[in-house]
Design a protein around this nucleic acid. Structure first.
Lengths: 201, 201
DNA sequence: CACTGTACCGAATGGTCGTTCGAACTTCGA
DNA sequence: TCGAAGTTCGAACGACCATTCGGTACAGTG
């Protein structure tokens, strides 16, 4: 059974290890696929014995949920901190943040996308679905405020473009995440001269 | 074993039935997921006995390949028939065709997307990978000719937007596939007045 | 040092899956 | 109408999977 240490001093270590394992699982699942990877295979890829995994995660599906949480929670946290007063500037900042998050969590994204049907239908997945809805709503509202010509279409278009980035972006490629993000924003926003753009982070 | 009739007269029937079954399998897999659907479950959903499926398809993975072929081949065929001399007009026609194809094959698209890793790595998947590459190349070239500001980014952006359409489009929604396609094209192309646009199909 | 909570292990288990197969039934050409 | 070709069936089979469990080794604390 997955048991968290009772001694507070050791809990930090346990949590950190767990986070690492979840991250590693995301990497393995992204490459081999969730269903095609057996627990013994996964454990070996993580440098663990078969049974040891269950010390940190109660089961395979919970592991998948943990991967999605590791993807969604920090994104929502970072988005909540946006404070640009101008909607267009806030939109640009959001997309920059978002693209950066996607490329930093490529593996998580790929797993997230290929398990769409479980996320949509599974009973234990309500929290993940809620997170996604929160983000959706936020984006749609912002697009409306920012004066986009067709906010609804722009919403779907952005979701498609940005999430798809996980499938082609390569760290050694010729563009930075920020350049990509700005390219996306320029597609949906009436372009502004570069001099008006907020500087990078 | 999956055996095609030797009598030519019956082959047409057999092929049509097989196509129907593949289509049905796409629908079931899109909803429940490929790995989460067992062969007995699938057979029942298709109104067949467990063993009967194997009369038409040699195995579960071949069934998945058949679904992808049923998606890619007609699209490439329709694309090959485009004959607009003006590149921008050809681009618009291509995207209209493409979006229409995506919404008509929603189930196939959803399966295609969630099985990305198998398609990319599997040994028997070379033909599907080749088809996708052909389409990619074609789109990229056309974007260059059509005078898009940033053809490479537009290429990835379009792929993301259009393919993502399968995940949100509903037949009873407020937009036609053609309106959606035109919206996408207007994002990547310097907009032209509606009067200059080619008429619908 | 002794003791206790923690980390790790891998063979064993029960269940489910994809696939096979021999037989029964149906269709069709002659 | 007869026989062969085509179609359907579902129980049976071997393989493999997620998970469990009894146990060993280790680390921190008193």
């Amino acid at each position: 059974m997955a048991t968290r240490p009772t001694r507070p001093a050791q809990r930090a270590r346990y949590d950190a290890r767990r986070d690492d394992l979840v991250r590693g699982a995301a990497r393995v699942f992204a490459e081999r696929g969730y269903d095609q990877t057996s627990i013994p295979e996964l454990a070996e890829a993580l440098g663990l014995g078969t049974g040891s995994l269950y010390h940190y995660v109660p089961g395979k599906e919970q592991l998948l949920i943990a991967i999605c949480d590791q993807l969604m929670e920090p994104l929502l946290a970072r988005v909540a901190e946006l404070d640009q007063p101008d909607p267009a500037a806030r939109l640009r900042a959001l997309v920059r943040l978002w693209v950066a998050h996607v490329v930093e969590h490529r593996d998580h994204m790929l797993v997230f996308q290929q398990e769409r049907h479980v996320i949509e239908h599974g009973a234990q997945w309500k929290s993940v679905r809620t997170s996604r809805k929160r983000f959706d709503r936020l984006l749609e509202d912002l697009l409306g405020e920012a004066g986009v010509a067709d906010p609804q279409l722009a919403h779907w278009a952005l979701l498609g473009m940005v999430n798809h980035t996980a499938q082609w972006f390569r760290p050694r490629g010729s563009r930075t995440p920020q350049e990509i993000a700005d390219g996306y924003v320029d597609l949906v926003l009436p372009p502004t001269p570069p001099s008006v753009r907020p500087a990078g982070p």
